[in-house]
């Protein structure tokens, strides 16, 4: 009754911006800026305050029906509770990994899980080849099967250092430390300026930051 009158219904996961700020690289103001962004994304097709796969695709590709292996994997990893949608808490926690100030360790683990297509705890050679083929399919690049095999083989030699036919997390970390560019997708510079991108409520957020 009275309680609900005082408290407008909020998006699931939005109840604790200070908790989210404490547990991610974002400040409370930035969490609130992300909420503005989240509201747009999560109501773009279905007005329910949750990001559905099609809304995610619409944001990335301006086309709700465009499928992409890697976008699918990112969506699945953002969907921490694995219920088919991304709520605000999942959105903030997952984007936090892409923050320029996030731990490299977290970025490495996220990328590893992304590439572990079948979630076996290892990146397998077949998965690597499947990902290369998926990229070729979406690009103009044409390579013969022999060329693809050669690229995958060479990478595999560098990566599977213990020669057991699969890349485990430790091997992945070694490979990344030798080739830091492999993590370039794991940092989104936009996240440094998120309050500038969504300034409409920054003033009120700053007041609340001081109170907290």
């Amino acid at each position: 009754g009275c309680f609900s009158l005082k408290r407008p219904k909020q998006t699931p996961g939005y109840e604790k911006p200070s908790v989210l700020a404490a547990e991610t690289p974002f400040t409370v103001s930035e969490v609130k800026a992300l909420y503005e962004l989240f509201k747009k994304l999560s109501n773009s097709i279905i007005n329910d305050g949750l990001i559905h796969k099609e809304e995610f695709q619409l944001a990335l590709f301006r086309n709700r029906y465009r499928r992409n292996l890697f976008a699918d994997r990112i969506f699945d990893l953002f969907d921490i509770k694995r219920n088919g949608v991304i709520d605000f808490e999942e959105f903030v926690r997952s984007l936090g990994v892409f923050h320029p100030n996030a731990l490299v360790e977290d970025k490495m683990k996220f990328a590893f899980r992304l590439y572990d297509l079948r979630q076996t705890g290892f990146i397998e050679r077949e998965e690597l080849k499947e990902m290369v083929l998926a990229l070729l399919h979406e690009s103009e690049l044409v390579l013969s099967d022999d060329e693809v095999e050669m690229i995958v083989d060479n990478t595999w030699k560098d990566a599977d250092t213990n020669g057991d036919g699969k890349i485990d997390l430790e091997e992945w970390k070694e490979l990344v430390s030798k080739n830091p560019s492999l993590l370039k997708n794991m940092t989104l510079p936009y996240l440094k300026d998120i309050t500038m991108a969504f300034p409409s409520f920054v003033l009120s957020s700053e007041v609340e930051d001081t109170e907290i």
């Binding site: 890697f70 976008a71 990229l135 690229i151 995958v152 080739n179």
Partner: peptide, 24 residues
Amino acid sequence: CNLNAFDIISYSAGFDLSGLFEEK
């Protein structure tokens, strides 16, 4: 051929999350 398979993959449009931040 020194192309790294993981480098090739990283060019996928699926990794470009900047679309999330663009004005709709």
